[in-house]
């Protein structure tokens, strides 16, 4: 095992990863209180910069993004 170099060998670009815990939380929420999963979904109004092609200054380039597709909304978070 080498000592860590002065510069990090691995640069993490994001956080908030999925895990067994977050999946379990989602499963429980689906069972007990699914309505909470709809809270704060701007994308579900058709205004999401990801899930709608009508996104103003940040156009969506998803092939799947057609505005009737709430099921693929990328702004849906786990909880």
């Amino acid at each position: 095992m080498k000592q860590e170099k002065t510069r990090p060998e691995l640069l993490s670009l994001n956080d908030g990863l999925y895990s067994a815990y977050t999946v379990q939380e989602l499963e429980q929420r689906l069972e007990t209180d699914p309505l909470l999963l709809s809270a704060g979904l701007s994308s579900f109004d058709g205004d999401c910069k990801f899930c709608s092609p009508f996104s103003g200054d940040e156009p969506c380039d998803l092939q799947i993004c057609e505005p009737y597709c709430p099921g693929v909304c990328l702004e849906l978070t786990l909880l």
């Binding site: 670009l13 994001n14 999925y18 969506c60 709430p70 099921g71 693929v72 990328l74």
Partner: peptide
């Protein structure tokens, strides 16, 4: 959506937004 998914996750410091269906036809369209 690959660019948006990756760049958004980096920009917002969140996980990549995953889904298990490609389109609303598999869910609620």
């Amino acid at each position: 959506g690959i660019f948006n998914k990756l760049y958004s996750a980096i920009g917002k410091k969140t996980s990549i937004s995953f889904n298990s269906v490609y389109c609303g036809v598999q869910a609620g369209a």
